[in-house]
Design a protein around this nucleic acid. Structure first.
Lengths: 250, 250
DNA sequence: GATTTGTCAATTGTTGACAATTGACAGGAG
DNA sequence: CTCCTGTCAATTGTCAACAATTGACAAATC
């Protein structure tokens, strides 16, 4: 785990956090440490000692401290005053909880957007739908999942609710940290993609017609299906390998 | 604004954050500064300079820094890297957004709780309902609002969704910071209290009968009414006084 | 006159040292 | 043997000094 000083972590994947690249040192540290955690190089429940981390990353304890706060905010570490930082154990249940909260927020977004749609976001969503349709036949699952995530984020944007958007992005990132990274997406078969693309199109149509009920209903089916399938995969994975990165039994 | 060092801010109101009393210095600072902000002693958009704050509170910049992160997390300040901290302007719209997000989360909680209720939380909720009923006739609005908040929090507990609970508490605190503090609750007339108590009882009944649909429907009416009434009051207030603490026009 | 460049004070970012607290362990009392 | 108590190393909390960046203002250039 000997880390080269200031790796500048070129995590430019716009699905992770496109608001700004992680240019401050604490954010880079949080990025690194977070990656270590999801990759399983830091085990669930493990204590993180500030001085060790500082030496490992070649900085002093100040930035490390701030990085730990960032990771606390992202729910990846528990921070107990005077008693240290610990890698937060991620149970299957807490991942399910995460999906459910995101679902509720996304539905609120859809409802709001369909109540008073803003043209530019509707257009963007339409583009995403087109992309999705194009990926039904020949797209790879990863790209499809990415675009789906983007479409949902577009809806969050379209709600015009800043808080909702902020929370959605945070929670989507947490989901990435928690699951998608290195999780097989084989369940996104062509049939499943077809269904998802259709449901997203349905949502779009409902938004255009200012029909919040339908928009919510369509998106709900889409997201509930995705949630259930993703959780099923994770459950299976956990059954196979007792230790799966940071995912504990709980 | 000459603050006595370490005022130990005995904010023991369990509605604010009962998880643990603010015993670390950064949290006390965040408490103080937050109070200053909602009271209008720090104006919206005002820049907060670390050294000034440190001297004002009689500590060094380290704890001030952490306090600012805490307030950033609570959405009370904007933190721009290398460019300082600013009191976040709270527009009426952002307060409305806050209400809507809380509403969505509370409904998810109700749905989940009604799907698989846990006896102890159902009992607690029943107690809250009894309290509310007792306050219809002679209770004061503030106490009534407090108990309502607690009932909703009980539902969040009852969902068994840790993330949901955490977010709910955070956002409820933000609502307190943003609005309730010093906001007249005259709109909680006896009629309104009667209706609210009834709706809460209806929600409780639905939970007992494992009827998520009804639970969600009842709670939705209750919370939407409350939201609309609170926002109306805030709108009026802003009309009267151009500057109302930290609430800007936006 | 408008735009660019250089300088400077103010402020944030970072560091290393010091203080305070914690949890564990050893020793002694019941 | 169990429980309590005092000591101690490990670790977190805090501080004050130093380094780096920013934004503003002035001077120079076109």
């Amino acid at each position: 785990m000997a880390a080269p000083l200031l790796k500048l972590a070129a995590v430019n994947d716009s699905d992770v956090d496109a608001r700004f690249s992680p240019r401050t040192i604490p954010e880079q540290l949080a990025e690194e440490l977070g990656a270590d955690i999801v990759a399983g190089r830091r085990k669930a429940g493990e204590r993180l000692i500030e001085l060790d981390l500082a030496q490992t990353f070649g900085v002093s304890r100040g930035p490390v401290r701030e990085a730990l706060r960032i990771l606390e905010r992202r729910r990846m570490v528990d921070l107990l005053p005077r008693r240290g930082a610990y890698v937060r154990p991620l149970s299957l249940k807490s991942i399910a909880d995460l999906f459910n909260v995101r679902l509720a927020l996304s539905l609120l977004a859809a409802q709001t957007m369909a109540t008073s749609p803003v043209e530019s976001y509707v257009e963007t969503l339409a583009r995403r739908c087109t992309e999705l349709n194009g990926m039904v036949e020949n797209g790879d699952p990863i790209a499809f999942a990415r675009v789906t995530t983007r479409a949902v984020r577009t809806i969050a944007h379209g709600s015009g609710n800043e808080l909702l958007l902020e929370l959605s992005i945070d929670l989507a990132n947490q989901t990435v940290w928690a699951t998608i990274w290195k999780t097989p997406l084989d369940y996104l078969t062509q049939d499943v993609r077809r269904e998802a693309a259709d449901l997203m199109a349905e949502t779009l149509e409902a938004v255009r017609k200012r029909d919040p009920e339908t928009a919510v209903r369509s998106l709900r089916v889409l997201l509930e299906n995705d949630r259930d399938r993703a959780l099923a995969v994770l459950t299976d994975l956990r059954k196979e390998a007792g230790d799966l990165s940071a995912i504990s039994s709980g």
